[in-house]
Simulated scan of single mutants.
Amino acid sequence: MKWLKTSTLSLVALLTTAGCASNANENAEWLYPPMAVPLQASVQQEVQIARLSQLLLRPDLSNEVRAKMYYERGSYYDSVGLRDLARLDYKQSLAINPLQPHLFNLLGMHFTQVGDFDAAYDAFGSTLELDPANSYAERNRAVALYYGDRLNLAMEDIQKHYDEDPSDPFRALWMYLIKLELDPEQAKQELLASYQDRTDEWGWVLVAITLGEMSEEQAFNVILQSTPDNTLLAQRLTEAYFYLGKRYQSQGDYASAVSLYKLAISFNVYEYVEHRYSFLELTRIYNQVREERIAKVKEAEKHASAN
């Protein structure tokens, strides 16, 4: 990866440091990646949280209004990265009014991020039971099933989701990522076919770098030239670094993947799934590397005892 070159930087160092390559290896060569100023909570967000907190203290609110306020405050908490507080408000809103499919969908994403997959499946199922046409919940459940290693069920959901709109690059990307675990060659061929019929939508740039049809330099030039403000730049870089991370991870380049997921997290685009799932991917890599190291130690001990 051209933006993060190191001579002998180990994955263990990447997993146990805050990302400072110079501390891990003084001879490391760094070429700075494209960056944006991390997003910060706005005055409006902070004021709305304070205002809603005061209003919720009133005893004369109707159940309908109270449920709506809990949802709104939870949304503001979510937008500034206060996940636990957001989840608490969503649950309180649902306790008052359980007929809110969009709230079950949000809770499902929260459960997926923390690895509570059974709760995520239930939440997305509730969304689709209340709102069968909710395509976001359909895709989110497929993603949760993918991270929960229930790949055949994930394929059923993502195939249906993809067939509803094959022109959507994000549907094509997640179709590819899930099928990659089952049939890598077919997954690549299908994504390439989708890419050849692409529109001008921004997400096809992400497909291009996933397939290697566009160099990373070209992709980041497109991003930098087409983003008039810092917020949009942060959002697009979050997406680009996440899907690049998935590409390097699938190639077994865990060190580059870890660096890219950390970059995806760094812009504080809390509401994007790419930000949420970067944490999950880091945990998966850590667990996989740990298991591989334990297996090597056991194999070495077995070999030593045999001799």
Rank of each mutant, 00 (worst) to 15 (best):
M1S: 12
K5Y: 08
T8S: 10
V12S: 10
A13K: 04
A13P: 02
S22P: 00
N23S: 12
E26R: 08
Y32Q: 06
P38D: 00
I49D: 03
I49Q: 04
L55E: 08
L55F: 02
L56S: 11
P59I: 08
V65R: 15
Y71H: 05
R73F: 05
D78H: 11
R83E: 09
Y90G: 01
S93A: 14
I96M: 12
M109R: 12
F111M: 09
A120V: 06
Y121F: 15
F124M: 11
D131P: 03
N134G: 04
V143E: 05
V143D: 00
A144D: 09
A144L: 14
Y147K: 03
A154S: 12
M155K: 11
P169A: 05
F170T: 08
R171K: 14
L173Q: 06
M175S: 13
L182R: 12
D183Q: 08
Q189R: 09
L191Q: 07
L191W: 04
R198L: 04
W204S: 00
V205C: 03
G212Q: 11
E213A: 14
M214H: 05
S215A: 08
Q218I: 02
N230Y: 04
T238G: 06
T238I: 06
E239Q: 15
G245R: 11
Y248N: 04
Y248A: 01
S250I: 02
Y254I: 03
S256A: 14
N268F: 08
N268Q: 10
V273E: 13
V273Y: 07
H275F: 15
H275Q: 10
F279H: 14
F279W: 14
E281S: 07
E281P: 03
T283N: 14
T283Q: 15
I285W: 13
Q288E: 14
E291D: 14
A306I: 11
N307M: 08
